[in-house]
Amino acid sequence: MKIVIVANGTLCQTDRLLSRIQQADMVIAADGGAVHLNHMGIVPRIIIGDLDSIPENILSMFKEKQVKILKHPARKDQTDMELCMEYAMTHGCTDLLIMGATSTRLDHTLANIFILRRLAAQGIPTTLIDAHNEIHIVVSHLTLTGCPGDLLSVIPISDHVQGLTLEGLEYPLTNQTLCMGSTMGISNVFTQDKAHISLKSGAVLVIKPKEES
Rank of each mutant, 00 (worst) to 15 (best):
I46Y: 03
K63S: 12
H36K: 12
H36M: 04
L51C: 14
R45K: 14
A34W: 02
P55I: 12
I58R: 00
V43S: 06
V43E: 06
L51R: 15
M40C: 12
R45A: 14
V67Q: 08
V43Q: 09
V43M: 06
I58S: 00
F62A: 08
H39A: 15
L59R: 09
F62D: 04
H36A: 05
E56F: 07
K65M: 14
G49C: 01
A34M: 06
G41A: 08
I48H: 07
N38V: 03
H36C: 05
V67L: 11
I48W: 11
N57F: 13
F62E: 05
I47F: 04
V43D: 01
K65R: 15
V43W: 03
R45E: 15
K65D: 05
K65N: 12
G41W: 05
A34C: 10
G49I: 00
I48T: 05
V67E: 09
Q66F: 09
K68A: 12
E64K: 06
P55V: 12
N38R: 14
I42N: 00
H39P: 01
H36P: 04
S53M: 10
L37N: 01
K63W: 04
E64N: 09
R45N: 15
I69Y: 11
S60G: 05
D50N: 10
I42Q: 01
S60M: 07
I58M: 02
L51S: 15
R45P: 01
Q66L: 09
N57E: 15
N57S: 13
I47N: 00
I42L: 07
P44W: 00
I42W: 04
A34K: 03
P44V: 00
F62L: 09
P55K: 14
M61L: 12
D52E: 13
I47L: 03
I58Q: 00
L59A: 10
H39V: 06
P44M: 01
I69S: 10
H36Y: 08
I48M: 12
P44C: 04
I42C: 02
K65P: 03
Q66N: 15
M40R: 07
M61H: 12
M40S: 06
